[in-house]
Design a protein around this nucleic acid. Structure first.
Lengths: 186, 186
DNA sequence: GCAGGTGATGTCAGAGGCTGACGTCACTCG
DNA sequence: CGAGTGACGTCAGCCTCTGACATCACCTGC
């Protein structure tokens, strides 16, 4: 039996979502979140670099899933992109309830949406690098990655508003086609 | 002759870019920026809501240009999008030097890139609304807008690294085609 | 002219986000 | 059993950002 209860990080994440939803993001102090998790404010900042990041606790793993999927895939640029997006979609699919619960916070607080966009940006960067590793020219890779992640964002936000058993991966593939049809061919 | 030198806002913006470049963004305090501009810290926060926003001082006008261009255009979704992006490109074209100067800050400081992404997000939202005003279904509009802005971002960042007389609008149109070709047609 | 309104700024006080330095204590490993 | 190691607490402090109130040039109507 250890001196400290395990998983301070997990407790902090849970406490944060609860408090942010209960009493609003800006009316909640980090000290309150830490208090509910049974630690001090200083400990909060050892686990998360700032007040927002706690809402994105386990999204780092998605980065890896994305990169792995693209690395092990092959085919056209579209095939590689679909492989990556499908992996991300799979990761999100299981967590529909959790993500839908915290989504109102993103929509109500520009600060939080800002951080969400930054996360998407890091996925985009990771995807571009993974595409480049397949020999795709860097600027083409960056373009494809950026657009792909934009499609994912729009589709996922729509999916979050629906039932948890809707097939996100399928919706993403369809949105990819639709986007290409809408914007291509001058 | 007025009591206060005019354009505190402009002086603040200039002082901020200079100081952020000279001594780094995080080693610069708002009080220093205000001091160089000849005002107090409190006055800074009357002109800009936070430490970052000063770097995006005149980008609000671009929002309007984008919306106007789409509103007065007609044709396919692609036509409308191209009209909007062309208007934005025109606004950026004149300010290549200024934007290129501050760009390293965006690349070096995640906080600032984060804000930049938020600005792109607001363009995307505005574009989606403008498309919807033409009768395009909201989810199709959101998809087209998001992808279009992603293309603009990648293209503009590349353009910023090149000479100021390169034609951004043309590059954006080409990138739109390239993106559609890369990702379409399953 | 002149009283009152307006707008931009200054001053002051304070909450809250975030960081560095240092101490404590259980656990572990040699 | 003694020296790490890691997770946490404590303390002090800077900086970002906000509310409340004062000041002073300028304008407006009379």
């Amino acid at each position: 039996m250890s001196r400290w209860p395990d998983d301070a990080r997990t407790r902090l994440a849970a406490a944060a979502v609860d408090l942010y939803l209960e009493q609003g993001y800006d009316r909640t102090t980090v000290a309150q979140v830490a208090g509910r998790a049974g630690v001090t404010e200083r400990t909060y900042f050892r686990h998360f670099p700032d007040k927002r990041e706690v809402l994105f606790a386990n999204q780092a793993a998605i980065d890896d899933a994305l990169v792995d999927a693209v690395a092990t895939a092959s085919g056209t640029v579209r095939d590689l992109v679909v492989a990556g997006l499908t992996a991300v979609a799979a990761s999100l699919q299981d967590r529909h309830a959790e993500l839908a619960r915290r989504q109102p916070l993103m929509d109500q607080h520009p600060d939080l949406r800002e951080r969400e966009l930054a996360k998407l940006g890091s996925w985009s960067t990771a995807l571009a690098a993974a595409l480049a590793a397949h020999g795709i020219a860097p600027d083409r890779a960056a373009l494809a990655a950026s657009v792909a992640i934009a499609v994912l964002d729009v589709t996922a936000r729509d999916w979050l508003g629906g039932p948890g058993d809707a097939d996100l991966a399928r919706a993403v593939r369809e949105a990819l086609d639709e986007a290409a049809a809408l914007l291509g061919g001058s």
